[in-house]
Simulated scan of single mutants.
Amino acid sequence: MAEISMTVNGRKVTATVEDRTLLVHFLREHLGLTGTHVGCDTSQCGACVVHLDGKAVKSCTMLAAQASGSEVLTIEGLAQDGELHPVQAAFKEYHGLQCGFCTPGMIMAAVDIINRHPNGLDEKTVREELEGNICRCTGYHNIVKAILAASEAMRGRAAEAA
């Protein structure tokens, strides 16, 4: 058993878990944060993407104990004060989802992609960066449009703040 402590969506949590508990299972089963999905358990589909200390990680191949001492952000913590994050809003506006299974991981990956490319994105870069996230419904066209729109919106906000 391992005693773990981390900050999840801004809230400090402490728990005792089996050493082999994956981060995705800790989030879903221990904390009730079911927005992070289990798709493949092999790091292939991206449905389990969360942010660990500000970077996208696939939580299905990471032990909860490895995240101890870190800050974890899940899809549930992305919206602030009842307002959708710009990426969430863009996915809604541009119909970047259908069944919704991949959507939380796709959105968390998209936020990371946009954060790593503060000067903007092009379609080729978005498609390359999304290679680790699988969507079986939309064919990516609307997902890519949503990410490009969110990138522009976030650049606009940053320019206004500066």
Score class of each variant (00 low, 15 high):
residue 4 I to V: 15
residue 5 S to C: 09
residue 8 V to L: 08
residue 8 V to H: 03
residue 8 V to N: 01
residue 9 N to K: 10
residue 9 N to P: 08
residue 10 G to T: 12
residue 10 G to M: 07
residue 10 G to L: 03
residue 10 G to N: 06
residue 11 R to M: 12
residue 12 K to Q: 13
residue 16 T to N: 08
residue 16 T to M: 06
residue 18 E to K: 14
residue 18 E to M: 15
residue 19 D to G: 10
residue 20 R to Q: 13
residue 23 L to I: 08
residue 23 L to Q: 03
residue 23 L to E: 01
residue 25 H to P: 00
residue 26 F to E: 05
residue 26 F to D: 04
residue 26 F to N: 01
residue 27 L to K: 07
residue 28 R to A: 04
residue 33 L to F: 03
residue 34 T to E: 13
residue 34 T to P: 00
residue 36 T to L: 08
residue 37 H to C: 02
residue 39 G to Y: 09
residue 40 C to F: 11
residue 41 D to P: 03
residue 42 T to A: 13
residue 42 T to I: 13
residue 42 T to C: 04
residue 44 Q to L: 15
residue 45 C to G: 07
residue 47 A to I: 06
residue 48 C to E: 04
residue 48 C to Y: 07
residue 50 V to Q: 08
residue 54 G to M: 06
residue 55 K to S: 13
residue 55 K to I: 12
residue 59 S to P: 04
residue 65 A to S: 14
residue 67 A to E: 02
residue 70 S to T: 08
residue 71 E to A: 14
residue 72 V to N: 03
residue 72 V to W: 08
residue 73 L to Q: 02
residue 73 L to D: 03
residue 74 T to S: 11
residue 74 T to G: 07
residue 75 I to D: 01
residue 75 I to S: 02
residue 76 E to H: 09
residue 77 G to N: 06
residue 78 L to Q: 00
residue 80 Q to C: 04
residue 81 D to E: 15
residue 82 G to D: 04
residue 83 E to H: 13
residue 83 E to K: 14
residue 87 V to H: 07
residue 88 Q to N: 09
residue 89 A to M: 01
residue 91 F to H: 07
residue 91 F to D: 07
residue 92 K to W: 14
residue 93 E to R: 15
residue 94 Y to C: 04
residue 94 Y to V: 00
residue 94 Y to Q: 10
residue 96 G to Y: 13
residue 97 L to Y: 15
residue 97 L to W: 14
residue 98 Q to N: 09
residue 99 C to L: 12
residue 99 C to R: 11
residue 99 C to S: 12
residue 100 G to A: 10
residue 101 F to W: 08
residue 103 T to R: 06
residue 103 T to F: 05
residue 104 P to Q: 11
residue 104 P to H: 12
residue 106 M to E: 10
residue 107 I to L: 02
residue 107 I to M: 02
residue 107 I to T: 09
residue 108 M to K: 00
residue 109 A to C: 13
residue 110 A to R: 10
residue 111 V to Y: 00
residue 113 I to E: 09
residue 113 I to P: 07
residue 113 I to A: 00
residue 114 I to K: 05
residue 115 N to S: 08
residue 116 R to K: 12
residue 116 R to T: 07
residue 117 H to R: 05
residue 117 H to K: 06
residue 118 P to I: 03
residue 119 N to K: 14
residue 120 G to C: 11
residue 121 L to W: 12
residue 122 D to C: 08
residue 124 K to M: 08
residue 124 K to P: 00
residue 124 K to G: 02
residue 125 T to R: 14
residue 126 V to Y: 10
residue 127 R to K: 13
residue 127 R to E: 04
residue 128 E to F: 11
residue 128 E to K: 15
residue 128 E to H: 10
residue 128 E to N: 10
residue 128 E to S: 11
residue 129 E to L: 09
residue 129 E to V: 05
residue 133 N to F: 00
residue 135 C to L: 07
residue 136 R to H: 10
residue 136 R to F: 06
residue 138 T to C: 11
residue 141 H to C: 03
residue 141 H to F: 09
residue 141 H to L: 11
residue 143 I to V: 05
residue 145 K to W: 02
residue 147 I to F: 00
residue 150 A to S: 08
residue 151 S to L: 03
residue 152 E to W: 03
residue 153 A to G: 03
residue 154 M to H: 02
residue 155 R to Q: 14
residue 155 R to N: 04
residue 155 R to P: 14
residue 156 G to D: 14
residue 156 G to W: 14
residue 157 R to F: 06
residue 159 A to G: 11
residue 160 E to Y: 14
residue 161 A to Q: 14
